[in-house]
Write a protein that binds this DNA or RNA. Structure first.
Length: 423
RNA sequence: GGAGAGGUGGCUGAGUGGUCGAAAGCGCUUGACUCGAAAUCAAGUGUGCUCGAAAGGGUACCGUGGGUUCGAAUCCCACCCUCUCCGCCA
């Protein structure tokens, strides 16, 4: 959510920002509703003041005088109820509109409508050369007995999967790998976050109200989170954080659930896009300073790049274009690792910063050195999403004989150097 | 799932219809005292919206949302959450 004062004073900026994100907004309506809101508020406050004044008089007055005053008050109240109802209506529309206004993207964000226009910032490593036609990950995994998609569908339904044997070993090795890197080296606090989360935190992080379709919902009304970001940010909801605690950096783990509504037909095979997965997420809260946000954005991006480098995966970093940014994101980098079977890069990580868009919705503040309450800034980036990362590992490390080499850093955790063969 | 208790400011905690944004204590800030500190004394110390150049004013907020009333932290209703006991359970 943006500050209404900021919107009022920077209409053109907000309008241009929404256009860059290709998000339709009705700013004229918002401004009109805001004017109405202010007018009614003032009108009602004046009436309340009058009411309070008279109430005090009634308290002192006696007998006849008192009854006369009470009668007068009843008249005064009649008009107030209307104003109050009207204000309530206006507030509902005001809030609904406010939730639709996207955050303004950074100057450096490229123009564009979809991920096709994302700008490649840099690459790392080399595309692996194959003397044969590389197979897609689901074929390799099935052939080597790492995954069972047929039974996955039988048991869990569409996009269901089992990982077994070396497939499960690889997944568990990746967990230990990423846990080791973050718990011991990065200065992050580990967080084990709930996935079953109430509506507020989804609204606060910007996934609702517009993303209802993508979320699973329980019969009790909670939603299943698609990322630990939701709960981790919600953790600080309605709180004032001690400034000395900032920046707060979390290495948050949670199971993740996504309905993938509207992506039928996309990535149907394998474990690239699944309904149920696990993710380690970097979540950061910092002081309300653009330069600090930018610096931390680079830092959490570098953290993930290091992981891909250690895994020996060729990847590129793209700056996401305006049309590929979420409602609250100011800027986003995607890390995309090479997918040999598709002859293109596919997303493994996504690093964004939000300024105070999320914290304003979540009401997360801190008191600065001048004693002023400010909304903190927030950022997040994938640390590692599994099983997705398996797709690139398996494809990039496949050999001519159909087996798959284990990335050297994972060998100690997997316990062997080749998948799909006996030790 | 059943029974009971309870949600008040940064914290503890008083307040059961009116002058209560809320006692008291703690904490915090500033000042006095002191070489300095502690102790002591004095003053101050919530947030949102809104009017105002500012000083300051208005209004709202005692878990959330409704209701009763001239007037609600206080009464009524619904919901949320916490705690205790029972049941179940990794």
């Amino acid at each position: 959510m943006l500050d209404i004062k900021f919107i009022r004073e920077n209409l053109d900026v907000v309008k241009a920002g929404a256009a860059k994100k290709h998000i339709a907004v009705d700013l004229e309506r918002l401004i009109a509703v805001d004017e109405e809101r202010k007018r009614l508020r003032q009108e009602l406050d004046a009436k309340k003041a009058e009411q309070n004044r008279r109430s005090n008089e009634i308290q002192i007055a006696k007998d006849l005088e008192r009854e006369k005053l009470i009668e007068q008050m009843q008249h005064l109240k009649a008009g107030m109820a209307e104003s109050e109802d009207r204000l309530k209506e206006v507030m509902v529309e005001w809030q609904t509109l406010m939730l639709t206004i996207p955050n303004v993207p950074d100057m450096s964000v490229p123009d564009g409508e979809s991920d096709e226009q994302n700008l490649e910032a840099r690459t790392w490593g080399e595309k692996p050369a194959f003397s044969f036609t590389p197979k897609p990950h689901h074929e390799l995994m099935t052939a080597l007995g790492l995954a069972d998609f047929e039974r996955g569908a039988k048991v869990a339904g569409f996009r269901g999967y089992f990982l077994r044997g070396d497939g499960a070993r690889l997944l568990m090795a990746l967990r230990r790998f990423v846990e080791d890197r973050f718990m011991n080296r990065e200065g992050f606090e580990p967080m084990f976050a709930p996935s079953l989360v109430r509506r507020e935190a989804f609204i606060g992080t910007g996934y609702l109200p517009q993303g209802e379709e993508d979320l699973y919902k329980t019969q009790n009304g909670e939603y299943l989170a698609g990322t630990a970001e939701v709960a981790t940010m919600g953790y600080f909801m309605n709180e004032v954080i001690d400034q000395s605690m900032l920046p707060l950096k979390f290495f948050a783990y949670s199971p993740c659930f996504r309905r993938e509504a509207g992506s039928h037909g996309k990535d149907e095979k394998g474990v690239f896009r699944v309904h149920e997965f696990e993710k380690y997420e970097q979540v950061v809260l910092c002081e309300a300073d653009h330069a600090t946000s930018v610096q931390l954005h680079e830092e959490i991006t570098a953290n993930s790049e290091k992981l891909l480098q250690e895994l020996g995966l060729h990847y590129r970093v793209v700056v996401n274009c305006g049309g590929d940014l979420g409602l609250g994101q100011v800027k986003k980098y995607d890390l995309e690792a090479w997918m040999p079977s598709e002859n293109r890069y596919r997303e493994t990580h996504s690093a964004s910063y939000f300024h105070d868009f999320q914290t304003r919705r979540l009401n997360i503040r801190y008191r600065d050195s001048g004693g002023i309450l400010r909304y903190a800034h927030s950022l997040n980036n994938t640390a590692l999403a599994i099983p997705r990362i398996l797709t690139q590992i398996v494809e990039n490390y496949q050999k001519a004989d159909g087996t798959v080499k284990v990335p050297p850093v994972l060998v100690p955790h997997v316990g062997k150097d080749t998948l799909g063969v006996a030790r």
